[in-house]
Design a protein around this nucleic acid. Sequence first.
DNA 1: CGACTGACTCTCT
DNA 2: CAGAGAGCCAGTC
Length: 118
Amino acid sequence: MTDLDTCQRIWNSVAAIPAGKVASYSQVARHAGLPRRARLVGYALRHMPDRPDIPWHRVITAKGEIAFPRGSDAYRRQRRLLRAEGVVFQGVKIDLQRFGWRPQTDAGLDELLWKPPD
DNA sequence: CGACTGACTCTCT
DNA sequence: CAGAGAGCCAGTC
């Protein structure tokens, strides 16, 4: 397994994702100080202890899709958890414009978030 | 040591 | 906007 410290940082970054928003693997990797290690994040999550304080379901691919194959058990589970937090799915994808995690502009994003759709 | 794989991403077409 | 290809890193065989 990777350095425990690395995993800790990854999990910590995942835990930093606000409820109702999602972050891509690369986003989490970058936030954890691991620029191009998106796959490592995936690996870390795969081997993650099922701790309730780690919202793994808020981590999706850069396309805004759940990384699991559609129709799989894990896919439905993650999708349900996200929907429970208010994340809206457009078909198989999530609108990253609205639900994408913006660590830098997180504070003032609410207005943007709740602006009525076109 | 090398080939294969995976909860990935970026770039080019 | 979708598909192909290359890059990336750790684990497994």
